[in-house]
Design a protein around this nucleic acid. Structure first.
Lengths: 231, 231
DNA sequence: ACGAAGCGGAGACATTTCCTCCGCTACGGG
DNA sequence: CCCGTAGCGGAGGAAATGTCTCCGCTTCGT
């Protein structure tokens, strides 16, 4: 039985301080890429980890490999979620749960979202994920339809598309109301039913106009500060 | 009555060839910013216009002023749309039409979308727009609710939020199926009703798995080609 | 206590973007 | 038709940003 295996199978273990730094780097990378997306610099990661750039580059030959290692388990978690949703007793609840899981995961991590959508890094890992999920998602949808709990004209590819939309709302609203996307998940879920009477109240209040404005200012500033400029 | 006024009130008119170039530039800018967003270079605009960069910079002192002039009318159109939607006979149709207009406008133009969401350029113009639209949108929602055609817990700020989500879907799916977002507009619209029985079939087919994959490859390439790189 | 492993971060190198400058072109009033 | 001048093109200056290397110093652990 092995305890606390450092994530470097079959290699001479690192010196203790080095291993500690390595973990700090991974943790910092998770934070930085999660908040600012994959565009963040390894210099940023190093700064957050309280470590020099050199240290980062010594441990991870390049950005790609850090990002790869970082998202490996999160990607596997997505596949596992689909599979387990497929075994829910109530097919509709399973589907709803899966959509929620997908959106939650993406909503909380800008880096992961970029990885899944734009695949600038770790393309093959993502391709594998897609391949693994496809049949499961299809079954998830079919089961819900067979039970008469989901519109017949919904298709498996709609699920990721809806997740993307929700994740966007999450990203945009994050600075002001990180849970707002759940409101729209509820709304969409009701649209997915074959029919319904009345409506469960929406969770999470809508933004008020002041929040909406603040949101815009926030984004405007973020964009401006990142914009290249002369003089 | 004035015909074909060049867009430069109270200034000596341009030489004929210069005016022609000016228009080419504006047209090219509309295309380029629409397709690739506000990050596109003025060099790109010049190339598309078949003109040297110098010419662009002589006519528009900097990027900001070109972008500003370019989106002025489109922004006014948005405000006008809200106002006219408010006068629809059927409040629900008015609301639906407005949401569709908003999404269509944003979906078709990445530059406009970035302008509205991130306000890197033309901030004041957008702020004015928001101010002008706010009360109208509120009335639009209230009317639909009063007529019992819209859930009571929907709020005016939900409208732009939903438009953002739809625009994202549009952007992402654009290379493969530019109209896909209408499918999700329909879905969301049904979620907005207080209740319903049965469901009108969704317009526009869902993506099939092959298209989904192609989509991802496209984005992956786009991202990669824009990524900075060493050696 | 000493050899090796590890560290930090300045900076080389590459890229991208904005915008200027100046020698040449071609429009159009007389 | 001609020539003064408005206008043109696009190489390239200047600045920002990003990736990754290198080497003198520090710290570990045997």
């Amino acid at each position: 039985m092995y305890l606390m295996i450092p994530a470097r199978p079959d290699e001479r273990p690192l010196r203790r301080d080095a291993e500690r730094n390595r973990q700090r780097i991974v943790a910092a990378a998770a934070e930085v890429f999660g908040e600012r997306g994959l565009d963040a610099t390894l210099d940023d990661v190093a700064r957050r980890a309280g470590v020099g750039v050199g240290t980062v580059y010594r441990r991870f030959p390049d950005k790609e490999s850090l990002v790869g290692e970082l998202f490996e388990d999160r990607i596997n978690a997505l596949a596992a979620a689909a599979e387990s949703a497929c075994e829910a007793e109530d097919p509709w609840l399973g589907l709803q749960w899966y959509l929620e899981f997908l959106a939650t995961t993406m909503a909380g991590d800008l880096g992961l979202r970029q990885m899944l959508l734009f695949a600038t890094y770790g393309t093959d890992r993502v391709a594998y994920l897609r391949e693994r999920i496809r049949p499961v998602a299809a079954r998830l949808v079919e089961r819900a339809q067979a039970a008469g709990q989901l519109r017949d004209d919904v298709c498996a590819t709609d699920i990721p598309m809806l997740a993307i939309m929700l994740a966007t709302a999450a990203e945009y609203a994050a600075p002001v109301q990180p849970a707002l996307w759940r409101r729209y998940l509820a709304l969409i879920a009701e649209g997915l039913r074959p029919s319904r009477e009345g409506a469960a109240p929406l969770p999470v209040a809508a933004l008020d106009p002041a929040q909406m404005e603040q949101l815009m200012r926030t984004h405007s500033n973020r964009a401006r500060s990142r914009r290249p400029g002369p003089s």
